[in-house]
Design a protein around this nucleic acid. Sequence first.
DNA 1: TGATAAGCTACAGTGACTTTAGATAAAGGA
DNA 2: TCCTTTATCTAAAGTCACTGTAGCTTATCA
Lengths: 142, 142
Amino acid sequence: MLAIGTLSRKTGTKVQTIRYYEQIGLMNEAGRTSGGQRRYYEKDLDRLAFIRHSRQLGFSLDSIRELLDLSDNPSQSCAEADSIARRQLRQVEQRIKRLQALKKELKRMVAECDGESVAECKVLEVLRDHSECLTNHDEIGA
Amino acid sequence: MLAIGTLSRKTGTKVQTIRYYEQIGLMNEAGRTSGGQRRYYEKDLDRLAFIRHSRQLGFSLDSIRELLDLSDNPSQSCAEADSIARRQLRQVEQRIKRLQALKKELKRMVAECDGESVAECKVLEVLRDHSECLTNHDEIGA
DNA sequence: TGATAAGCTACAGTGACTTTAGATAAAGGA
DNA sequence: TCCTTTATCTAAAGTCACTGTAGCTTATCA
């Protein structure tokens, strides 16, 4: 029987995060000691490891839920797991593309800046004037 | 005098987002008509465009706040704006690196999967067993 | 005048957690 | 056995950067 802290250490997951996974139904409800502390089996550790690894590969919790369902029913076709992974791959590729466009523009920004006063700062100038952009970066963010 | 919808259209920002920027103090409080609707000047439009462009380049709202402060005090040295931009560039480069590692592993995952039953699914297998990873991907996510 | 579009506030929801506060339990040493 | 330290518990709020909803009011134009 493993305590939550052991799962935490072995998977590099914060204790609160494990409880959160239980709360949203991604981890099964753990058994409890008489004092009310959670205790886990090896299979719970495996499941958590699966979740964490999938998260590290960028899968959303929803996707992970699907993958876990598949994993729990091993007689089904693999096609669905494959398509989830391919979708994930496409998303990753798109993010890379977008970030590379950002990198290009940021590089240009800092390259043109020669450290004079803000009045002539290229960084701020570029940010002010979108029309100077080399790239169109429509989407935002992470 | 520009209505909020005009700013919205010209900058591609949702109306609610503009109001949100006002709420958190990123945009100045707009003047109002007798009926209570917000009205803006060109300079507000410029400021919003600056914010949006910076967001598209991945700057956090906190960084943007700093950049706007600099922009409002044009006699200062440009060094700080430069360092914020460089920090941003580093972050973008790191994200690209990480995503490329993910891409590699996802590619390997889907390449090895031949569409048989879940029991032999390489995708799920790889997710189950972190030790098979080619890469160490410590950080998570976006 | 009256229809329609645009705007208003206030609040809840998103994803994937993290943080905090305050209390209780377990484990190990003297 | 007692004590101390470490681990765990619950419940709720906070994070980031918005987005969505409900129900109402204002502005604009024919």
